[in-house]
């Protein structure tokens, strides 16, 4: 047996692994320190472990699909996704750095923290929409695309389980009003069928899905 090609392949694989490690380091560095004058540290809002502040003003990034996050950078940069905050940052970020940050936060393991929980009736309505849908509104279950338990349909479809309720509800409002237009065409159509109460309900449901049990029991 000739070992040459195998050694070559092993070296190539090691090379790839080393490259991935460098990439993650670069991502972590940008998350912590920013990149140049126009890219502030991501951790300022999203925290270094990717769980953001818990206020819901900023989304949780830890464990999110890297492909999806890189796509958001591209959409912020092009203006397809509109944000006064993220637009200039994404524009200033190179594609390689964007991919590095996305890879870093995809691998981040920040915990799921307990948040103020909405009332049980609202969560139950959210559970119904998320898992079963609503025939009267011709709404399919959110989980059809966002995965069982809302864990995401990676790479293209983000997780919702454990995402902050305020953030989810705001995105739905933006799709409904037309101020968010990127992503799947179907989201606008779906959001238009949701009442404010429905949005609050799905958002509240998904937020509490991955809470640590000890925290939830408090």
């Amino acid at each position: 047996m000739k070992l040459g090609p195998w050694i070559g392949a092993a070296v190539a694989m090691f090379g790839l692994a080393a490259q991935a490690q460098d990439n993650l380091k670069r991502g972590a560095d940008i998350a912590a320190n920013g990149a140049g004058d126009n890219v502030p540290a991501c951790s300022g809002c999203h925290a270094q472990n990717g769980i953001a502040g818990g206020s819901g003003a900023f989304p949780r990034l830890a464990g999110q699909s890297a492909w999806y996050m890189a796509r958001q950078f591209a959409d912020y940069a092009s203006g397809a996704r509109n944000s006064a905050l993220m637009g200039p940052i994404a524009k200033a970020l190179s594609a390689a750095d964007g991919a590095a940050v996305a890879a870093y936060y995809a691998s981040a393991k920040g915990p799921f923290v307990f948040n103020n929980r909405a009332d049980a009736t609202l969560i139950e309505r959210g559970r119904q929409l998320a898992r079963v849908g609503d025939q009267a509104k011709q709404l399919a279950a959110c989980n059809n695309c966002h995965g069982p338990g809302g864990i995401g349909g990676f790479p293209a479809i983000p997780f919702l389980a454990g995402q902050y309720a305020d953030y989810i509800a705001l995105q739905l409002q933006m799709w409904k009003s037309g101020s968010r237009k990127d992503g799947a065409d179907s989201m606008a159509d779906i959001a238009k069928r949701l009442s404010d109460q429905d949005m609050a309900a799905v958002a509240a449901y998904y937020q509490q899905l991955r809470e640590a049990p000890t925290q939830a029991a408090k």
């Binding site: 079963v132 609503d134 279950a141 989980n143 069982p148």
Partner: peptide
């Protein structure tokens, strides 16, 4: 039978 609830995934 109807789309909701009969045809939902998984």
């Amino acid at each position: 039978r109807d789309t909701v609830p009969d045809f939902q995934s998984p």
